[in-house]
């Protein structure tokens, strides 16, 4: 099974990289861009076939290492 973990900054936490990306897009002529947020995606291959178990383990991974929940939020997607 594969877990796809998406980590990004919580709403309300300044994201200067997202801001710079939005600005660069606007400069390129994409005037419809009003904002951008930048995060990261972590793909994890798991030797686990039980979806519920996998989800609970990946949640633990997020809390222990993958996200700093003071500033970040995370979302987990499982495939396979």
């Amino acid at each position: 099974m594969k877990a796809i973990v998406r980590v990004d900054l919580k709403q309300g936490v300044l994201d200067p990289q997202g801001k710079a990306v939005a600005h660069a897009l606007q400069v390129l002529g994409f005037e419809e861009v009003s904002a951008a947020r930048q995060g990261k995606v972590i793909e994890i291959d798991l030797e686990e076939s039980d979806k519920a178990k996998a989800e609970s383990r990946v949640k633990e991974m997020c809390e222990k290492l993958l996200a700093n929940t003071v500033i970040e939020r995370y979302a987990i997607e499982l495939e396979g």
Partner: peptide, 17 residues
């Protein structure tokens, strides 16, 4: 120290990048 929660808060990317 912030990552280990020995101190509160976190250090973000500099506002000016």
């Amino acid at each position: 120290l912030c990552e280990t929660e020995l101190l509160p808060g976190a250090l973000l990317r500099n506002a000016g990048l």
